[in-house]
Write a protein that binds this DNA or RNA. Structure first.
Lengths: 185, 185
DNA sequence: CATCACAGGTTCGGTCACTGAACCAAGGTT
DNA sequence: AACCTTGGTTCAGTGACCGAACCTGTGATG
């Protein structure tokens, strides 16, 4: 049992008067930003986060609860029987897209040889600029209009079903619908 | 003694094919982004990082070494006798400015009531837009032309000398020159 | 009805990173 | 000689993270 207090504290940077430090208190723990990334990609279910991230179950449960408490994810019942909840990213979480985009771009430019994913403006197909803008349309592209496509650096035949589902070009935020397991009718 | 191997591994997200995950393996550990933030603010010396961050000495030493190994900071001798080194941010580290800017903006909009710092285009005084651009000049402002000013939310009389020095409006990257200790001539 | 599968957790022991305090060392100053 | 400054290292204690096992509620299967 984790108390609300222990949750609220987390790892704080008490002496820092800085909005970066405030942000890091919320999303700076291990795995947290990857959970948010997956949520932007359309992942919503506990088990999908689990297999896609390879995160320990207890840590995932703690992160989902903390992010829900912070209003970054929203827990929502999507079926009554059996009762099942999904975690949907909120406006506050979506607002982290530019930061994730910047981080990813930095990682690619400095540490990734081959392009792993393309992010395009769904309306015109143009690849996004460094700030998430469309160079052709000269506008900031809303997150739901960002089209994610696999790049040449991505494993074309990954083991887990979530990675496979993310190989199909798709818009951000679009809920991930996993194909029904083989063996079922 | 920390081996180079243990350093290189750190906490990795082995299963993730993602440039965000690659980035987080480098800069995702506790304190790391705040060290880089301070380096962008012009902090260069071990002791200045120490007092400004309130970070344990061992952790600071490990972070400085890791960031130097990653080419984000550069260790440079600034005086021969006694031998003293400073840690200067490199191009690779400066390239993290947009990501830090985005994170800070998110933190301010969602968790900070009052503005703590202003970032302006030094040439014209206009406050930067969300992507580090100058709305007036319609250009992306180079980091060295960003002017940092204290906002109303900042403690006007902080205890540590580094925070005091950062209260003066100053450009990013400009080396922090601490006033000589009182009692010296 | 008993059993199994599945989603979504909780529990637990071991390990590893972070923490704060103490200690150390090279050089300079008084 | 004693002390100060800078930049560390060492060490014991704590807390976060880890993987594996277990649990629970519900529906499906035989």
């Amino acid at each position: 049992m984790v108390t609300v207090d222990a949750m609220a504290l987390g790892k704080d940077y008490a002496t820092q008067e800085c909005s970066i430090a405030r942000a890091l208190e919320i999303i700076g723990e291990r795995w947290t930003l990857l959970v948010i990334r997956d949520a932007l990609y359309g992942v919503r279910r506990y088990n999908d986060f689990l297999v896609h991230l390879g995160i320990p179950r207890a840590v995932l449960a703690a992160r989902l609860q903390a992010l829900t408490a912070e209003g970054i994810l929203e827990k929502r019942r999507y079926q009554q029987s059996p009762p099942r909840d999904e975690y949907v990213i909120t406006e506050r979480g979506i607002a982290l897209w530019p930061a994730l985009r910047s981080l990813g771009l930095w990682g690619r430019q400095h540490y990734t040889e081959i392009q792993l994913r393309y992010f395009r403006h769904a309306d015109c197909g143009t690849e996004l600029g460094p700030y998430g803008e469309c160079p052709a349309c000269a506008t900031v592209v809303p997150v739901e209009d960002v089209l994610m496509e696999p790049g040449p650096g991505l494993d074309p035949d990954p083991a887990d079903p979530v990675s496979r589902a993310l190989l199909v070009p798709r818009r951000l935020l679009q809920p991930l619908e996993l194909p029904v397991q083989p063996g079922r009718v």
